[in-house]
Design a binder for these strands. Sequence first.
DNA 1: CGATCTACCTGATGGC
DNA 2: TGCCATCAGGTAGATC
Length: 278
Amino acid sequence: MPELPEVETIRRELEKEVVGRKIKAVDITGRRTIRRQKPAEFQAGLVGAKITGSQRKGKYLLMPLDNGSVLVVHLRMSGQLLRAAAKEPKPKHTHVVLDFTQGGQLRFVDPRTFGEMFLATPDEITSEIEELSTLGVDPVETPMSWVDFGHLLRSKNMKLKAFLTDQSMIAGIGNIYSDEILFDAGLRFDRETSSLTTQEIRRLYRSLVEILHEACKYNGSTLADAQYVDIFGKAGTYQEHHQVYDRDKQPCRRCRRGDIQKTKFATRSTFYCEVCQV
DNA sequence: CGATCTACCTGATGGC
DNA sequence: TGCCATCAGGTAGATC
């Protein structure tokens, strides 16, 4: 579910709400959330530790601890991190609860159970764990020049949507934002990376940066099923600014001549305007 | 190597 | 109402 802007919203909030807090207890009730290591090991690595930072790499959240290891969280499709008071009733599908010595909890809630949490050392993150060490540049965290972006794009021969959502190229873009970026850039999802002119590359990169920043500003997108909410349970509002995602059969807001089309690209729903995107 | 599909789950929705 | 099929923001792994 959450892509870069949603994870970034959560990261910012964690910075204010949990950084500096010390973990008093860890309660693991979910069967699948802690799956890279033994639950007892995960628990032992957290209890007594203080969270010293809140970082993001693509769709991964990284919370360094004062004992040298890093708490890594990936929300996948339906994961949520929720700040709550201990006495508040736990929502269904609460799998992991961190209790802080200063009071309050951070809960990991995840109906579809695809999300996960684990502890790793900084070394493992940068060189051993495949998905993390091979992650591409995060375009919000580490901006690059559009020229470098062009080199990256030209180094591959693939369709634009596949390129944008490939986490080893650019980290953090998923199904919603790839469609929004491509619409903004006026490019079709199935254009070949090698077919772009210099001007189109520049336009694509500008759209990519702009759409992601705008979405962060509006705290991400919350769709009808309200799966994505921030740590206070609050929805994002960027969906109000979507030009194509989830707008099939509705008139295109730019050209006002065609309707937004919905199709499939590599099994994923894909939205675009046949008039504006070439 | 890339492209494509499946599996991993629960829950919401829409058709009949 | 209910039953059943389909779909959902992600990604690793298998297969061709």
